[in-house]
Design a protein around this nucleic acid. Structure first.
Lengths: 198, 198
DNA sequence: TGTACATCAGTGAACGCGCGTTCACTGATGTAC
DNA sequence: TGTACATCAGTGAACGCGCGTTCACTGATGTAC
């Protein structure tokens, strides 16, 4: 509600915007140690605050993970939109797919939290809103660009999503080695070919 | 080397085949509690043995997870071959893809260990052999059935793998809800359509 | 402008827990003679 | 057939660790009067 007069004052007892600081620290923690080793205590330490402080903002550790997943979906949506806006040569669908895959490679642990973990509370209203928004945009792109290959719009969406997500997941988990060992620009070319072959 | 005369004798000090029993118990533990909560102590308890016993067979907890991933890839390869052998109406490639997806749904945590975790030691010779074998078979199937869509056999393999793996992963993590809510037979039909649209 | 007070974010000590690993040991088993 | 011995799989106690959560508290802040 009120904007603190000196939000970054190091000596203040109250932090200013601890919630945002914890999310930032949480992402660093996540990317450095992975979900399996995620620790609330270390996140608090990273934010320079006692380890009991996060409870005031998130309740418990899963509350923080839920907020992190929400933040992740917002970032994800923005990243895809930006990439689509900047792209001149490719279709919106392909540009979005490349953004999806790029996001996974840039934020591997956040991506895993969003798409592979069951620790966030996916019934949480804010999280649902953020993920629905990203998904709806994707559905719109598919509908406006597929040629109705399967004769069923739902199936076209699923086929497209499976392909893009499969590439992102196999790359981010290090399984698709032949693509990973390519330079960034060669990988881009290969991805465009693969996405186009569908 | 020697076959114990009474391998299941409950009173014997030596177990008989503790290694196999621990792998079996490990899979149950994995499927019930997930990788994130996997505990060596509970696996030992499940196998009816003291919690220090596994060290004699696997060294440490990651050794057991490596053995579990190896076992998973063997099961995975056998499952796909069996499904292909039984299938009369579909191509070998499609039958194999359905087997891949079925395996994921039947052994979700084992699947996650094999394809999403970094805890097993993927440099381990036995694990590498098991996963290479499954992959080589898949590559062969793609080569013998794709029409050289992209003009590059490597890209055809990657496209196919991404699609199949994407479907398996989105289903096993519960993300592709529209497919999950279908009955098993309707889901099968939808999957065949999606796989065929590539 | 000054004072009393309510609010509530952050502190720090304490809790109980389950974990993986180590280690001296025990006892079952197979084998050499 | 009997005995001595080596092997080694499994035991159980002990270790230190980091974790999430709870709780009485402190002190900074905003506001009512």
């Amino acid at each position: 509600m009120t904007t603190p007069s000196s939000p970054s004052s190091p000596s203040s007892y109250h932090h200013g915007d601890l919630r945002a600081a914890l999310i930032e620290a949480g992402e660093m923690e996540l990317e450095e140690r992975g979900i399996e080793n995620f620790s609330l205590r270390r996140v608090a330490k990273r934010a320079g605050v006692s380890h009991a402080a996060p409870a005031h903002h998130f309740g418990d550790v899963n509350g923080l993970l839920t907020a992190l997943a929400t933040y992740g979906f917002e970032l994800f949506g923005r990243k895809i939109e930006n990439d689509q806006r900047k792209e001149k040569d490719l279709s919106q669908l392909t540009a979005g797919a490349l953004g999806y895959i790029d996001f996974a490679l840039e934020h591997p642990a956040l991506f895993a939290l969003m798409f592979s973990s069951n620790r966030p509370d996916f019934e949480n209203a804010a999280l649902e809103r953020a993920s629905d928004r990203a998904f709806e945009r994707f559905v719109r792109d598919v509908h406006s660009e597929t040629s109705g290959r399967t004769g069923d719009a739902h199936l076209d969406v699923m086929a497209r999503w499976a392909m893009v997500h499969g590439l992102a997941d196999l790359l981010v988990t290090g399984r698709m080695r032949s693509l990973l060992k390519l330079s960034k620009s060669k990988r881009r070319t290969a991805l465009i070919q693969i996405l186009g072959s569908q």
